[in-house]
Design a protein around this nucleic acid. Structure first.
Lengths: 352, 352
DNA sequence: CTGAAAGCGCTTACAG
DNA sequence: CTGAAAGCGCTTACAG
């Protein structure tokens, strides 16, 4: 009597009249199979609608996968990057039993060279997959292309540089997030009066992503024929004194500023300034779920925060590598996160 | 030479001087181990910080798990429940390779008896885990208690009835979601004038969750000393004609309604009425990401929609059962979803 | 109460 | 180019 209730690879082997070793070779596209048998096996697989058993595969395989991540380190000053890291850790805990380890590299977001150094280290270490926050455009692009040459999939999070060499981008549509910021501003700032856009960063020239948000913000006011005049200032030092000095000047020059839009998480500094200078009546919209900012949101100094689920970005970034490398299923080349609105009344429930 | 690089169960067996069968018995808390050896094995497990290999476990075990879900069916009229179902399907596709199947039961949310009938069917069928939308309070509670007696974990989604017999609740904090609705209303409705709350449902007496939202909404206006007078109307028929007739009456009685808050997804009916009756100037805030509502959001008839990630609720609901039954890790007894704000400018990116 | 063996569906050397 | 065997870390009968 033939055993006829075989499953998987064994059943294919029986039907094709070959050994399971051969079936394994064609499934995994390894060399050493005659075109004929390969064709035959493939046909039978298709016929059976064969789905490999991931459990068995991971259990049997002693191949370990190594992922690297390269994101900004977080400081006392701003702990934005804590959240993506938390997501990465969560993903790691879920897939480590599948033989995956993650090595973490950090760079200083105010120092381009630290990015370059770390990325070179990574390239030397033979990773199977890489996750980066491509803050510096040229350097990130170069790195991504190197990965591509080495056939190492590279996932971008938080801001995108559309190009062929990355596997996937997971993060906001920056233009639209700025656009939404403007709509929110419109709810809280009077229609007459000026609106001030503030970019705060030591590396503004490299901070393409801030400019995308600014573009979106401006576009809203133009498209909706708002009467507000939109002006802007760039602040290239991130400490409070610099912010304060700059804003004091701007407010002295422009008497009728009704709203301020800060294009990144530094909005808490602006809030501090408004509070200290007694300008809480100015509407304030900014980015990200930092504890410092939440305090001002509670008090009403900040009206809205736009958030993009940073933790989920980290989590999904790792899972995308996992899908690509382990599960072998196709991944979306661009995955936009929802654009979340945080107010005084819903911040408690936000899953950061 | 002793092989000293054993792992898992085999290594424990070696150290305890027993067979792996015995180790397996204590790991899985099966009978037939003397107290002494059990204690010994347990100590060694602790010493080694033993973590069972889930892959191997699922692969070796031929035990199949059966989950049941019991949620409202969706109709042309409202497809809200499509989203949780989609999440459930997604979860199923991820865990079916672990030997889990899901059987789907639906009830008519306008018919308490259909809920009772379906829940009785489920109790007869010997499931390992159950997910329900406990729309009808008493009946759901009774069902949940029956599950508890049978030792079947039961997860609630979408609305909660806090009690000991459920394993977990995954969904909104309804009170706060109403509270947030009021804050949003406050952005768009003038401070002078009346605000109208509308509950639309054929089963209003059972719809405890609508009332929780109403409570939250009212609380905001009270806590913030708003001058608006808040009034309400219950509409017990869900078709457009009923809604239209009722609202015509209300608007005739109250001339100065500046804003309307609809406590569920039926907000699109109200939007249709406002549009047809030329009352688009009235601010409108409601719930859920239905296509019909999104159309009115785009046009500006609806100002804000409050959403609670219904798809994610379904997904997480199933995964919670999986965690509890397969991974054997503790689950949160209450998991509040974020309270999301949807506007014209961010709906495109919402992951429903 | 305990142990030895077979097997889950794959991968990985190794032999031919 | 192909096959047979061992093994991944567990569970499941079965035997004693």
């Amino acid at each position: 009597m033939k055993k006829n209730n075989l499953t998987g690879i064994r059943e294919i082997a029986r039907l094709a009249n070959v050994s399971i070793g051969t079936v394994d070779r064609v499934i995994n596209n390894r060399i050493g199979v005659s075109p004929e048998t390969k064709k035959n096996v493939l046909a039978i697989m298709k016929d059976l609608d064969y789905q490999p058993n991931i459990l068995a595969r991971r259990l049997a395989s002693k191949k370990l996968l190594k992922f690297a991540i390269l994101i900004p380190s977080f400081s006392q000053e701003t702990d934005f990057w804590k959240a993506p890291l938390k997501g990465i850790d969560l993903a790691e805990s879920e897939i480590k039993q599948y033989g995956i380890t993650i090595e973490k590299y950090f760079f200083d977001q105010n120092d381009k060279n630290s990015f370059i150094k770390q990325s070179e280290k990574i390239l030397k270490s033979n990773f199977d997959g890489i996750l980066i926050a491509p803050i510096f455009v040229d350097e990130s692009l170069k790195f991504s292309k190197s990965c591509n040459l080495l056939q190492i999939p590279c996932v971008f999070i938080n801001s995108d540089i559309p190009n062929e060499s990355r596997l996937s981008y997971i993060g906001p549509d920056l233009f639209h997030s700025g656009y939404l910021g403007a709509q929110l501003m419109n709810y809280v700032a009077e229609e007459a009066g000026k609106i001030l856009i503030i970019n705060i960063s030591k590396e503004i020239n490299n901070y393409h992503h801030l400019l995308r948000k600014e573009d979106g913000f401006r576009a809203y006011f133009e498209n909706n024929n708002k009467r507000n005049q939109v002006i802007k200032t760039d602040i290239t030092q991130t400490d409070f004194n610099a912010v304060s000095a700059d804003l004091t000047k701007v407010l002295a020059t422009h008497g009728d500023i009704k709203g301020i839009f800060v294009t990144n998480s530094r909005v808490f500094s602006v809030a501090e300034f408004l509070e200290k200078s007694g300008n809480e009546n100015i509407a304030l919209v900014g980015y990200d779920f930092l504890n410092a900012s939440i305090e001002y949101l509670k008090k009403g100094t900040i009206d809205f925060l736009v958030c993009q689920q940073p933790q989920e970005q980290g989590y999904k970034g790792i899972m995308t590598l996992y899908q690509n490398l382990v599960l072998n299923i196709p991944v979306e080349s661009t995955y936009f996160m929802p654009i979340d609105i945080i107010t005084k009344e819903n911040y408690l429930f936000y899953r950061n």
